[in-house]
Amino acid sequence: MSAPRQRDVPTDQRPAERAALGALTRAFPPELVDQVLLDSGRIEQGGRLLPARVVVYFVLATGLLGGHGHPDTARLLIDGLTREPWWPQGRSLPTGPAIDRARQRLGPEPLRRLFARTRPAPAARSTSAAWFRDLRLVALDGAIFDVPASAPNADFFGHPVGTTARPPSRTTGRTTAVQDQIGFPQARVSALVECGTDTVFTADVGPLPDHESALEAAIYPALTRGTLALADRGTTDPATWHAARAGGADLLWQVPSSLRLPITARLDDGSQLAEPGRERACPAQVRVIDYRLDTDPRHAPPHRLLTSLLDPAAAPAAELAARFVQQSRTDAALDHLTPAQPGPGPVLRSHHPDGIAQEIFALLLLRHAFPPARTTPAVRRHPTIHLIPALH
């Protein structure tokens, strides 16, 4: 199974794309690109057809131009770079294999560092959805992306697995279920997203078999004091909880309501205190908030949140639940990271894992530089929250 064939379009038919590519050097100035190349040890000696600086712009251009092929992207990019004072005049157009070799030399680290250097500042306090009182609201987000079915991608990222039934055995007459690899290899991405603005301010890329919590551990250092981190698939694993809190951030994580916790006190705001016991169900001293929504199906289980904010006066249970529900009803930022592409197959195009990481960080950088237009959401009735003071 191969990646879809990309199309090449004559450059004289692409004025909009040329204008967009011209904005790359304004959004990511050459001096900044050179600094991240220096920091990551990728500065090259002169003379190469594709210097590292140009390769960074090329990877960004592939994300900007969607499904168009490497030759078309290179023509458009070089057409724009010839207007830059630092571009050597008369340099020839690189071939596809030369581009692939240059991308392998570059690796993903410069794009990762450029993403970290260009993350936007926190939202203003006037953006109410981005704040809970004095705490900046962020959410853990995750997504899975198809990647081309090359041997390096399959070995590193892995395939999704499906269960199929084998025909009955001639000796036993029994049907057996087996697990088979299906579809394209897939990369897993975890990120921290600012609530209210959908700004992705830190992210990491890893193989599909990696558990989501393992990949999230790489982004926990971005959780610092003054932040409240929301997660709709939280965990009660003590090591994970403490890793997320190591920088001083507070947590508001959803866990299964069936989880039995050692409740030590019931508080006036309808929440409860729980502390670690012999069981691992409680990661630390936490407040437990149980609630139902008037929009829940009749026999649906209740919702349960754990938070490190222990003072009900500073963080009432009803307000925390309302903020969590508000965020859970918004679209995940990573769901709209890749551009739409006609036809089947992955949008990401590299046949090597380092190239896939490059492309994902390039898409995140482009989201910083050219944020999508924010539309006014459809007016939806906010569900009524009913706290459950003593679930178990």
Rank of each mutant, 00 (worst) to 15 (best):
119 R>E: 05
179 Q>F: 03
44 E>V: 07
152 P>I: 02
158 G>L: 02
219 I>F: 03
38 L>D: 15
111 L>Y: 03
392 H>P: 08
313 A>W: 00
308 S>E: 06
389 P>I: 06
216 E>S: 15
204 D>V: 08
357 A>W: 01
158 G>Q: 00
35 Q>Y: 05
337 L>M: 05
17 E>I: 06
111 L>K: 00
154 A>T: 05
229 A>S: 15
152 P>M: 15
180 D>P: 01
26 R>A: 12
153 N>P: 11
22 G>T: 09
135 L>C: 09
69 G>M: 13
33 V>I: 14
76 L>C: 12
275 E>V: 15
281 A>W: 07
120 P>T: 05
121 A>E: 09
100 D>E: 08
292 R>P: 01
148 P>T: 11
179 Q>N: 14
167 P>E: 05
352 H>Y: 09
267 L>S: 10
126 S>R: 13
203 A>H: 03
360 I>H: 00
119 R>M: 10
181 Q>R: 15
235 T>S: 15
225 R>S: 14
93 L>A: 11
104 Q>P: 00
174 R>Y: 13
162 G>I: 05
368 H>F: 08
316 P>S: 11
239 A>S: 13
68 H>Q: 07
344 P>W: 13
86 W>M: 02
122 P>N: 02
251 L>P: 13
390 A>C: 11
286 V>P: 03
288 V>G: 06
251 L>Y: 04
391 L>D: 15
181 Q>P: 02
186 Q>E: 13
318 A>W: 02
203 A>Y: 02
208 L>K: 09
277 G>W: 11
178 V>Y: 01
115 F>A: 05
261 L>V: 05
93 L>H: 07
298 R>A: 12
218 A>N: 14
21 L>A: 12
233 R>D: 07
125 R>A: 14
255 V>T: 06
215 L>F: 05
28 F>L: 04
301 P>E: 14
221 P>I: 08
60 L>G: 06
218 A>M: 01
146 D>C: 07
3 A>G: 10
210 D>M: 03
288 V>F: 00
129 A>N: 13
291 Y>V: 08
68 H>F: 12
223 L>H: 02
79 D>R: 13
328 S>E: 12
183 G>Y: 12
87 W>L: 07
41 G>H: 13
249 A>G: 01
79 D>Q: 06
81 L>D: 04
91 R>Y: 12
50 L>E: 00
14 R>T: 09
85 P>K: 13
185 P>A: 03
176 T>I: 11
390 A>K: 08
204 D>I: 05
79 D>H: 15
75 R>W: 00
91 R>I: 06
339 P>T: 01
